[in-house]
Design a protein around this nucleic acid. Sequence first.
DNA 1: GTAAGGTCGCTACACTATAACAAAATCGCC
DNA 2: GGCGATTTTGTTATAGTGTAGCGACCTTAC
Lengths: 171, 171
Amino acid sequence: MSVFAHHTHDFAANPDAALQAADAHFQKTGVRFTPLRRRVFEIILRAGKPIGAYDILERLRDHGKIAAPISVYRVLDFLIEQRFVHRLATINAYMACVTPEDPHAAQFLICQCCGSVTEISDPIIDKAIAEGAKTAHFQVSYPLVEIMGVCADCVREGKTPASGCAPDHDD
Amino acid sequence: MSVFAHHTHDFAANPDAALQAADAHFQKTGVRFTPLRRRVFEIILRAGKPIGAYDILERLRDHGKIAAPISVYRVLDFLIEQRFVHRLATINAYMACVTPEDPHAAQFLICQCCGSVTEISDPIIDKAIAEGAKTAHFQVSYPLVEIMGVCADCVREGKTPASGCAPDHDD
DNA sequence: GTAAGGTCGCTACACTATAACAAAATCGCC
DNA sequence: GGCGATTTTGTTATAGTGTAGCGACCTTAC
Ligand SMILES: [Zn+2]
Ligand SMILES: [Zn+2]
Ligand SMILES: [Zn+2]
Ligand SMILES: [Zn+2]
C-alpha cells in the first residue's frame, strides 16, 4: 500500500463498496439510480483514474450497449449533480468523488507525467478562496482548483513535464 | 467608472497602452512579435472580456486576413508562453493578462451571469495551494484556479446562476 | 387506465483543438 | 548580397469534446 493513500474512505479504490454505497444512497433519497446510470458510474469507478466521456461510451459499447455521446453526457450531468462524480476541466475527464456523502469543495492534483489525479479537500485553500472572493464582492458557486504538476511517484523517478515526462538526464 | 476597477495597471482596459508595452517588451527581449501575433493580441485586448479561439479567427477574417484555426491556436500558444494571455479552461476562452511583466499565479473570478472575468493574484490563495501540494509531496507546475459564481454587479441586480441568471423573483 | 413527468434512443450538428506537410519569411554567417 | 538553417505561416484534412431537437418508452401518481 502506497504511502500516499490519502483518504480513509477512498471509494474509487473499492468500486464494489462505492457502488453499494451509491445504491443505498439513492434508495434512501428516492432519486432514480437507473441501470444506465449505475453502469456508467461503475465504468468510471473501475477506470481507477480520470476517464473521458468518449472512453466511457466505448466501454458501454463493449458491453453490448448501443449508445450515443449524448446519453453519456446526460448521465455525467446527473452524477455530477448528485456529487458522485467530478469533472476535470483541464483534461476534459471525469472521476469518481472520494467522499460523495460529504459535500465539499475539492482540489485536484493532476500529474502531467502519469496522468494520475488525486482529490484533496484542503480547508485552508477553500478558506483562502472564499476570502479572496469576498474581497472582490464575488459570490462563489463553485471554486475550481486544478493543480497541474508532477506527482510524488513521478518526482521520485526524476520525471519532469518539460522533458515530456521522461526521466531527467543530467548530462 | 466602476467601483470595481480592481487593478492599477489593467492593461486589458487600455488596449493601446498594452500593445505599446508589448512592443517595448518584445523589442527588448528580441522575441519576434510578428504582425499576426500583434493582431491577435490586439483582438484579445479589444474584446474586453474572454474570447474564444474561433471568435478571434472570425475577427481576423473581418480584417481581410484568411486564416485557419491552427494559426490562431499557434499564436495563442505563443502569447500564453510569453505570459501575455491566460487561457480559461472552464469556458474555453482566452483573455489578456493584466500584469504580463510580473510573473504570477493568477486566479479568475468567472461570472456565470454576465460572462465577465476578473483576474486576481491573491498571495494567500497561492500560498495555501503551495502548502497543500507540498503536504501531498506534489510538485506544482501550474496552479489553475477558476472560481465560478456571480460578480458584484450581477449580485447587486439580484441575478443568480440557478435562474439562468435572470433577476430573482421572490414571489 | 390514463395523464404527467422523467429517462433514454436516435439523428444530426456545433464547437474546440491538432496533425502533417508545404511555402514563405527571417536570421546568422560569410 | 548570397545561402543554408531556423522560425513562422499557410493549406488541407482530421480528431476530440459537447449539444439540440424530437420522439419513444418507462415509471409514477391519481
Ligand atoms: Zn469529491
Ligand atoms: Zn505521476
Ligand atoms: Zn495575469
Ligand atoms: Zn456578472
